[in-house]
């Protein structure tokens, strides 16, 4: 009796999961694909080869790649400091790392305008951040900050510092020890962190829309382009770009996954 109840529960659970995944994950993708190709392949091709659209995509990719490089370097440093060093305020810093996940990006964008805008406190900052792609980069870095850190932190903590100390007694310099001992150990976590950072950066909308202002031809990213196209009833443009972004995201995932498998095998 009990077992039958259990299997009934199991079936129910499976149903819930399938419906959930279906409604939230598959249905939008299906709708997107069908809408994109409603009038055949021609409109899609036209939409994504449109120079204006390509420009916005180029800006989005540039922001995502730069933010990923930046967060990869800084993420390793921050994770290192949080795991290996003890200092006053460490707990606070550790908590702050998650801030970008809990604050709405729109609010952060607005705060940046208040700080760096024409009448802001830091209006004389040497780099123009308000309504510029540099400002968009800063916010992209901010919203994608936690991923690399949170991937690497547990790996560093788990390996302990004895392997590094062993390398020291065997004559390896601190820098050499990092590259030969620590880096190979965190490589997979770092790769995964970078994938998440790329995906998050590519998809960011609110923060970059507010700080950049979404000026066509200069601070309009791919996601802002989609939003504008929808407003302009340019559905082909919006759907096509959305699909393209989705495909790029999936491609990044697949490539990185293959890289990981390859490296583990070798």
């Amino acid at each position: 009796m009990k077992e039958r109840n259990l299997s009934l529960g199991g079936i129910l659970l499976l149903l819930v999961v399938l419906i959930y995944a279906g409604v939230l994950l598959l249905a939008p993708v299906a709708a997107l694909v069908s809408n994109t190709f409603k009038d055949g392949f021609e409109p899609f091709w036209k939409a994504i080869t449109d120079p204006e659209a390509l420009n916005t995509l180029w800006l989005s990719m540039r922001l995502a790649v730069l933010a990923s490089i930046f967060n990869a370097l800084l993420g390793v440093m921050v994770a290192w400091v949080l795991v290996r060093h003890n200092f006053f305020g460490k707990g606070l810093l550790n908590a702050l790392v998650d801030l970008p996940l809990v604050i709405s990006p729109v609010i952060v964008g607005y705060v940046m305008i208040v700080l760096f805008g024409r009448t802001g406190w830091l209006k004389d900052f040497p780099i123009k951040l308000a309504f510029s792609w540099e400002g968009m980069l800063v916010l992209t870095v901010f919203v994608s900050l936690p991923f690399v850190i949170r991937e690497i932190q547990p790996v560093l903590a788990g390996m302990g510092k004895e392997q590094e100390e062993a390398a020291y007694t065997l004559g390896a310099s601190p820098w050499g020890t990092f590259w030969r001992i620590v880096f190979p150990a965190i490589r997979h976590a770092l790769t995964y962190g970078i994938v998440l950072t790329l995906a998050r950066s590519l998809g960011e909308f609110g923060a970059v829309a507010v700080i950049g202002g979404g000026t066509q031809g200069s601070t309009e990213s791919a996601t802002i382009y989609i939003y504008r196209s929808l407003n302009d009833r340019n559905y082909a443009g919006a759907y096509s770009m959305a699909l393209l972004l989705g495909v790029i995201a999936i491609l990044i995932l697949i490539i990185m996954n293959n890289l990981r498998v390859h490296k583990r095998g070798g």
């Binding site: 302990g160 004895e162 392997q163 100390e165 062993a166 390398a167 007694t169 150990a185």
Partner: peptide, 17 residues
């Protein structure tokens, strides 16, 4: 430590994984 010429065996061995 690099210049002391000691060999150290750690409790958990700390082999490079």
């Amino acid at each position: 430590p690099q210049k002391r010429h000691t060999g150290f065996v750690f409790q958990n061995y700390s082999l490079f994984q």
